[in-house]
Design a protein around this nucleic acid. Structure first.
Lengths: 235, 235
DNA sequence: CGTAGGGTTGAGGTTAATCAAGTATGGTGG
DNA sequence: CCACCATACTTGATTAACCTCAACCCTACG
């Protein structure tokens, strides 16, 4: 791990820019920078395999990563899509010799910062602030997963799709009102897996909403035409 | 919070018996005992409501608690069933003024130890060991949830049922072989909600497995008749 | 004895997966 | 510039899973 001073300072700066580390002390950041390694992945490249031990956890600097599970028959369901600035595989580092609960692939060329398990746990034990951040991050994921389990078994594909659009609008800070156009951030095949269904069904569901006059569809651009009815569908 | 010395020592002893706190220092346990409160719930009583702020988190001493979500139409899906010795609502305490992701009810008369949010977070910040335990606990839940999302969208009710039996046998340390009888720990209505379905479908699914000669059904006692075929169904 | 709660059974309908074929679309090489 | 191909997406017909509603059974219990 002999790195130039320049590279090391660069790493510290990068780490400090992540919300997860934003209010750590300078010395803590420096120690983390010591153990951090940059890892890059090509589009489509596999990062983690369900059932195998993860060696550490990752921060995503640029790109996009899907976290997914495969059924025995090979069908995939996407649990999360990781955006730059967020971390993934946090939970894995707490399973000694145990298996990763899901797989991960890069959806695009992706650049990550990797922290080896054991050394990161040492840091966690030294820094309460870091541990608290980690707890917050895992709590967030737990909340997301609870939402997913709820919507999966309790809603139709139509409902899940509408919910996805509402959430997408909110995370982009665009109002969910008539006339707003939302551009999908992923291909429709990926979106289908994200919603726990298949492309055919997603296609039909979009068409159904279009026929009902609730949305307009033009490729990856969806226009909200009747926000009232859409929101009513969620309850 | 004026409690007799007896009561306080009793609380410390109880806390130390939970795996979550087992290797904390005596002084840490004592501080936790200071802020802990015993809360009891009658069978069927509500403990937490989805969408409302949780005031703290809970350890379950005796009884059984279901964590669940309700669909807009009022159908319930059980996310977890908490057994004595385990904690719940950990994640909630990290959401400032924010909403609990799920609801909780006592399935039986249940006795819990409750920790108020703010004071518990103070303790977390003082004790790395405690924070690490908390991280481990949340990681475990994340893993369970990932399993659930996977199985929900990727399997049939039949598959989920068989998987449930395999897991149940494992957690009870009984071998999953022909002739073994497993007694369900919950009513069939609750089990149905646990599997993300309804009692009618569960009933039919049990019958189907019975007709195929894979299991024997006698009330809440299920006997494994063809473990090979059952395990094959999971792949 | 009557009622309530938990569980089962049946008929019918809806949702969504499967299989199979068709339509863009965007490179790539000739 | 066009033919070619791969990939992404759409459409249609069929089938399987499972939910809904309604009735019924059974045991416990006042």
């Amino acid at each position: 791990m002999r790195l130039g001073k320049k590279s090391s300072q660069d790493m510290e700066k990068s780490l400090a820019s992540f919300p997860m580390f934003s209010d750590l002390e300078k010395a803590e950041i420096a120690r983390l920078a010591e153990i951090a390694v940059r890892l890059s992945f090509a589009k489509g490249q596999n990062i983690l395999v369900e059932g195998y031990e993860a060696l550490g956890f990752y921060l995503l600097e640029t790109g996009r990563v899907k976290i997914y599970k495969l059924s025995p028959e090979g069908k995939e369901h996407i649990l999360h899509i990781i955006e730059p600035g967020f971390s993934f595989a946090e939970a894995c580092i707490f399973f000694e010799h145990q298996e990763c609960p899901a797989s991960a692939d890069a959806l695009e060329e992706s650049h990550t910062i990797f922290f080896p398990k054991d050394r990161f746990i040492q840091e966690l034990q030294r820094s309460t602030a870091l541990a608290m951040r980690m707890l917050g991050s895992m709590a967030r994921y737990l909340q997301l997963m609870a939402e997913q389990v709820g919507s999966l078994s309790l809603s139709t594909v139509e409902g899940r799709l509408v919910n996805y659009l509402v959430v997408l609008a909110r995370t982009r800070n665009v109002p969910f009102v008539d006339g707003t156009t939302i551009t999908l951030d992923v291909g429709k095949g990926v979106l289908a897996a994200r919603l726990g269904t298949i492309p055919e069904t997603l296609s039909r569901t979009l068409k159904k909403l279009q026929d009902k006059g609730l949305i307009g569809v033009d490729g990856s651009n969806l226009t909200i035409l009747n926000s009232r009815s859409l929101l009513d569908m969620l309850e």
